[in-house]
């Protein structure tokens, strides 16, 4: 039972990150009816922007020393007597990096928002009124552009970035088993869930959210009711880019950074199809289910199966419910 709990929690932690990635896909689809195949690459750009502002900028000659490593006297004194990998040492090491982590996050949010806006204005908006299929194909083309551009700007070097939260180990015993958790992963899960819930609340309770939902229902009617549909499009892309920036930063802290991060978006695409392309709740359930299934499969069947079993489950759900768990059923009358 303890083992089951351990792997379920691990799965939920991965699931929360999947949900954060998926929220961008759903937002763009809800507003524009476009499945953004390039979302994984937007996330990759978010990760690289985080790397730029958290690692490269603090190393530049003009950057103040405290930006690279903030270690006031009291911190040095506290750190001096601590063993290398003690929980308090992990917290202090993280605090030393805090200025550049905050700069990294701020830089990633702003730059990715601008990138999302640029894509929407320069590439998607001119296609408004054309077939949605053309816009989807454009996102496929965008994959090559973003992937190539990232390699040109940052090269393909594998890089490492500071964690968003202190990676203190958390250990406790439950049902006779030792449970191991990483502080940074719990914090990542909390960040992902808070952002996810914030977006769902925004879509449900704010004026902008109502505009997104109205546009999702019927663009022409939304227009005629005075909603600026192009603005809704822009907001959706900015929302996807900023959530993608946070997701990218989290993924970079977990796995390091390289152009291969872009591929992550494809596995999340399957999760979004399982949950329903236009349902935040459905996608959340699917993300958590896939995260837990992956972890449990890894535990019981090994890594050879961990990449297969959850996606077989996705396939079965789609076969039974082609519009996903909670997605809207589209009925076409001929």
């Amino acid at each position: 039972m303890g083992q089951f709990l351990q792997f379920t929690i691990n799965g939920l932690m991965s699931g929360a990150i999947y949900a954060l990635i998926a929220v961008g896909l759903v937002s763009v689809f809800k507003a524009t009816r476009v499945v953004n195949f390039a979302h994984g690459y937007l996330i990759m750009f978010g990760a690289y922007f985080y790397f730029t502002f958290a690692v490269l900028v603090p190393q530049m000659p003009f950057a103040p020393e405290w930006l690279q490593s903030w270690r006031p006297e009291w911190m040095l004194a506290m750190r001096a007597d601590l063993p290398m990998f003690s929980p308090m040492a992990a917290v202090l090491d993280w605090m030393a990096n805090l200025p550049r982590i905050l700069l990294g996050l701020a830089g990633a949010l702003v730059c990715n928002a601008l990138l999302g806006l640029l894509i929407e204005r320069a590439l998607m908006r001119p296609l408004m009124g054309q077939s949605v299929f053309a816009m989807i194909m454009l996102t496929v083309g965008l994959i090559s552009i973003l992937s190539g551009a990232a390699q040109l700007i940052w090269t393909s070097d594998a890089e490492f970035v500071p964690a968003l939260a202190p990676n203190t180990p958390i250990r406790f015993e439950m049902f006779g088993a030792n449970i191991f958790l990483f502080g940074a992963d719990l914090a990542n899960m909390a960040i992902a869930l808070l952002i996810f819930l914030g977006i769902v609340a925004m879509v449900r309770y704010t004026k902008s959210g109502v505009a997104i939902r109205a546009t999702a229902e019927d663009q022409s009617t939304a227009y005629s009711m005075g909603i600026s549909v192009p603005t809704v499009f822009s907001r959706a892309w900015v929302l996807a880019s900023t959530t993608g920036a946070i997701a990218g930063a989290i993924l970079a802290t977990r796995n390091g950074i390289s152009p291969a991060l872009g591929l992550f978006g494809f596995s999340v695409l399957a999760i979004v199809l399982m949950g329903g392309l236009d349902s935040y709740l459905g996608v959340f359930i699917a993300a958590m289910a896939v995260g837990v299934l992956e972890a449990l499969t890894q535990w019981k069947l090994g890594g050879e199966w961990a990449g297969i079993v959850p996606y077989v489950a996705v396939l079965i759900v789609i076969l039974i419910r082609p519009h996903g768990l909670l997605g809207s059923k589209e009925i076409e009358r001929i």
Partner: peptide, 21 residues
């Protein structure tokens, strides 16, 4: 322990848990 992982983006907490146990 014989533990297979993804070549990139592996679920580190799960693998470390397996190793610890």
């Amino acid at each position: 322990l014989e533990e297979a992982t993804r070549e990139q983006g592996a679920d580190i907490p799960t693998h470390v848990t397996q190793l610890a146990q």
